[in-house]
């Protein structure tokens, strides 16, 4: 946040460094059902951030003593592959990935009907193939599609996006330069169907007014992301509907 060595200006002639408007998302592409061996999977590309998510389950819980007799438990593992960043990323869990696993798990949790699957576990494995800011948001969005692809019963789709502040202005879906040298970054996850905010973090400085505006901006973008998610799932199964 606001480190040394960033670009002098983030907004030139009303456009951002990558040519986007302030409230414009990066090009978003989602594909469901990409891993045949998983119960559900999704691939997501948002700008140059790429994520692969696989879902296994509901399946038996191991070790057995973790079993919840009333509902399923959700496991979530976020991992960045070693070549996902510009400097090689040391493989294996880290402080950062453990935290992100936790927040993604908690942002998906309210959407799933866990009580439909007592005594089981649902596992979500997230691999960041290429990191260019907004990986936790991309991961959450993709995980939600993968869960739907696995046929798991859900209240709605979870969509996620980050809102940031560059050159004193709010901007949607930051890319890496803006994320690293901008003034603030607010990732949020949102279930648009129920109007529930399931993730809200803030890094950097925002006034309370700006934060409120950022949330509104994020929510609007999530509604658009949800459309893409829906299209991805429908496309996966669409041919069956036409029968």
């Amino acid at each position: 946040m606001g480190g040394v060595g960033g670009p002098e200006k983030f907004i030139v002639n009303g456009k951002r460094l990558d040519g986007r408007k302030l409230d414009e998302l990066r090009p978003l592409m989602i594909k469901a059902g990409v891993i045949p061996n998983a119960d559900g999977s999704a691939y997501l590309k948002m700008g140059s951030t790429e994520v692969l998510v696989s879902v296994y389950g509901p399946r038996e819980v191991f070790p057995k003593h973790l079993t919840d007799p009333n509902k399923a438990i959700l496991g979530c593992l976020y991992d960045m592959v070693s070549f996902s960043t510009s400097d090689r990323n040391r493989p294996g869990p880290s402080r950062r990935s453990t935290e992100i696993s936790k927040v993604i798990r908690e942002s998906l949790l309210p959407a799933i009907f866990l009580e439909k699957y007592p005594r089981t576990k649902i596992d979500v494995y997230i691999e960041i193939i290429n990191a260019n800011a907004g990986t936790r948001c991309a991961a959450t969005t993709a995980a939600s599609v993968a869960l739907a692809d696995a046929g798991i019963e859900m209240k709605g789709l979870v969509s996620s996006v980050a809102v940031g502040k560059i050159d004193g202005k709010l901007a949607l879906d930051l890319f890496d330069a803006e994320d690293n040298f901008g003034q603030a970054d607010v990732p949020l996850a949102y279930i648009s169907r129920t109007d529930e905010l399931t993730l809200l973090q803030m890094d950097g400085d925002l006034t309370s007014d700006e934060l409120k505006k950022a949330i509104e901006m994020g929510k609007k973008a999530c509604v658009r992301i949800a459309e893409t998610q829906k299209a991805a799932i429908t496309e996966r199964f669409g041919k069956e509907a036409k029968k």
Binding site: A111, E153, M154, K155, L157, T194, K230, T234, K243
Partner: peptide, 9 residues
Amino acid sequence: ERDIVVPGD
């Protein structure tokens, strides 16, 4: 009948 739906529709 036979419309395709996704979670939350």
